[in-house]
Simulated scan of single mutants.
Amino acid sequence: MYTQDPDYASYPDITRRADKEQLEQLTTLLKSADLSAQANSLRPGHTSNILIPTDTRDYLKGGMNVILPLTFDDGVKWVARVRQKRFDEPPVEKRKILVASEVESLRVMKEAGLQVPAVYFSSDQAPDLNYYFLDFVGGTPAAAPLTEHDNPSQIPTIIRSFAQFQIALSELTFPFIGSLHPSPSGGGERIVGPLCDRYIKQGRLFQHKPVLSYLAHLEIKEMVVNFDGWGEEDVFYLKHADDKGDHLMIDPKGNITNVIDWEWAYITSKAEAFAAPCAFSSVVEYCDQGRATLCDLEHLLMKDYQDLGRPDLADCVKEGKKYQFLNDLVGEEPQMVLMDGLRETFSKERKKFAMEQEWEEWAKKVFSEDQGLKDLLKKA
C-alpha cells in the first residue's frame, strides 16, 4: 500500500525557492566578476554593457545555463552563456572541461562554415563561474518536440533545412570517438578526448533504484555486445547531445538560421550521428508506447536526404531508432516502455511488464551470476 508524502504539495514551492536562491547566488558572483571587461578584452577597442537582471524571475535560462545579453558601443551584440549554480553541478574542474569542449566544438564547426554562432572565450575565468561569449543570433527556437510546433506549415521547411545542415556537418570527420578538447599546449591542434564515465554499482548513480537500474544496464549491455550488425568504422562524426528541437533557430519561413546549445556534443559513429534527432519523434508513439517504428517526420527526413543525394544518411535514419532508445536509457532511470522499444530494435521480444518489481525479479533470475549484482544486493 502506498501513501502520499504529507509534504508533497509543498514540493513545487521548495523547488522554486531553491531555484531563486541559486540564481541569487549566481547574481552576486556575476556582479563581482565584471564580464563586460572580459568581453572588451576579447574585442579590443570597444566597450560593452552587459545586462544582469535584478529580479531572478527575469533571467533567460534553460536547464543548465543562463543567457545574458551584451551590447558593444558600435551596436554589435553578444550574449554570455553562463553555467547556473545548481546543487547537482559537477566539480569545478569538470565544469571547466565541459565548457572548453563546447567552445572547441563550436569553433571547429564555425571554421567549417556551419550555421552555428561565433564563440569568444578566455581561459582566465572569474572565480566560481564558467562561461563564454557568443554572437547574438536571430530567429526563434523551433518547438521541442517538433510535432508540437505552433506553425505546422513550417515543419517541412525546418526538416529540409535540418537535412541540409546535417549534410554539411557530415563533411566534418574525426579519427576517434570521444569529445573535442583544445590542445593542452595551447596551440591550434584539437584533440579528441574521453567521454565521461558513469557508475552505478559504486553507488554514484540511481541511489533510490540501484538494483533495477543496474539490471537494466546489464540487459542493455548484453543486447549491444551480442548485436552483430555494428560494422567496422574508421571515420567518426560530431553529434548534438540535446537535439530535442529548441536547439534549432528558425526564420519566419522555417529555414534554420543557427543551431545552438552544443553542450555535451560528442564524436561518434556515422550511424548514431545521423540517426533522426529526438525532436522528430512522436511523443505518443515513442514516449508513451515505446514504438520502434519511424514516425511521419522521420520518414520526411529520409525523403529529404534521398532528394538531396544522400541515401546513406537516409539509411542512418531508417536504422537509427535503437540510438534514440539507447540515448534515453543509458545512464538514465530505467523506463519499462522505452526498454521494450529497445528490445524490439535488437529483434528481442517485448516483455510488457506491468510493474517495475516484475521486471526486476525477472532480470535478477537472468543475471543471477553477475558478480556486480551480487555485490549490490548485499548493500541493498
Score class of each variant (00 low, 15 high):
residue 5 D to A: 10
residue 7 D to M: 10
residue 8 Y to T: 10
residue 9 A to E: 15
residue 16 R to A: 13
residue 19 D to Q: 11
residue 23 L to V: 03
residue 25 Q to D: 12
residue 25 Q to K: 15
residue 29 L to I: 04
residue 35 L to G: 00
residue 36 S to E: 13
residue 38 Q to R: 12
residue 41 S to M: 10
residue 43 R to D: 15
residue 43 R to Y: 13
residue 45 G to E: 09
residue 46 H to T: 07
residue 51 L to E: 15
residue 59 Y to T: 00
residue 65 N to E: 06
residue 77 K to S: 11
residue 80 A to T: 03
residue 88 D to C: 03
residue 98 L to R: 14
residue 103 V to S: 01
residue 105 S to G: 07
residue 105 S to D: 05
residue 112 A to E: 09
residue 112 A to V: 04
residue 113 G to Q: 09
residue 118 A to E: 14
residue 120 Y to F: 15
residue 123 S to E: 13
residue 123 S to F: 14
residue 126 A to S: 10
residue 128 D to I: 03
residue 128 D to P: 04
residue 130 N to C: 09
residue 133 F to N: 00
residue 137 V to W: 06
residue 138 G to I: 08
residue 139 G to D: 05
residue 141 P to H: 08
residue 144 A to R: 07
residue 154 Q to S: 03
residue 161 S to K: 07
residue 166 Q to E: 12
residue 168 A to L: 08
residue 175 P to R: 12
residue 176 F to I: 05
residue 176 F to S: 12
residue 179 S to N: 12
residue 186 G to H: 06
residue 187 G to I: 01
residue 190 R to K: 13
residue 192 V to K: 03
residue 196 C to W: 12
residue 197 D to I: 03
residue 197 D to L: 11
residue 199 Y to F: 12
residue 199 Y to N: 14
residue 199 Y to R: 14
residue 200 I to M: 02
residue 201 K to W: 12
residue 212 L to G: 03
residue 214 Y to N: 00
residue 216 A to P: 01
residue 216 A to V: 04
residue 217 H to W: 13
residue 218 L to D: 04
residue 225 V to P: 02
residue 226 N to I: 02
residue 227 F to Y: 15
residue 227 F to R: 04
residue 231 G to M: 10
residue 233 E to F: 14
residue 235 V to L: 11
residue 237 Y to T: 00
residue 240 H to Y: 13
residue 242 D to I: 02
residue 245 G to T: 01
residue 247 H to A: 01
residue 248 L to R: 00
residue 250 I to T: 03
residue 251 D to G: 05
residue 253 K to A: 09
residue 257 T to F: 10
residue 259 V to M: 08
residue 264 W to F: 12
residue 264 W to E: 07
residue 265 A to M: 03
residue 265 A to I: 01
residue 265 A to L: 04
residue 266 Y to L: 08
residue 266 Y to E: 02
residue 267 I to R: 00
residue 268 T to Q: 04
residue 268 T to R: 01
residue 274 F to N: 01
residue 275 A to L: 02
residue 275 A to C: 14
residue 281 S to V: 13
residue 286 Y to C: 02
residue 287 C to I: 07
residue 291 R to A: 08
residue 291 R to E: 14
residue 292 A to M: 06
residue 294 L to I: 08
residue 297 L to E: 05
residue 298 E to P: 00
residue 300 L to S: 08
residue 305 Y to R: 01
residue 311 P to A: 07
residue 314 A to L: 08
residue 314 A to D: 04
residue 315 D to G: 05
residue 315 D to F: 11
residue 317 V to D: 06
residue 319 E to F: 13
residue 331 G to Y: 12
residue 335 Q to E: 13
residue 335 Q to T: 05
residue 337 V to N: 06
residue 348 K to I: 02
residue 349 E to Q: 13
residue 352 K to A: 11
residue 359 W to Y: 14
residue 363 A to F: 10
residue 363 A to Y: 10
residue 364 K to N: 05
residue 368 S to R: 13
residue 370 D to E: 15
residue 372 G to A: 02
residue 375 D to F: 10
residue 376 L to K: 02
residue 376 L to W: 09
residue 377 L to K: 04
residue 378 K to Y: 07
residue 380 A to K: 15
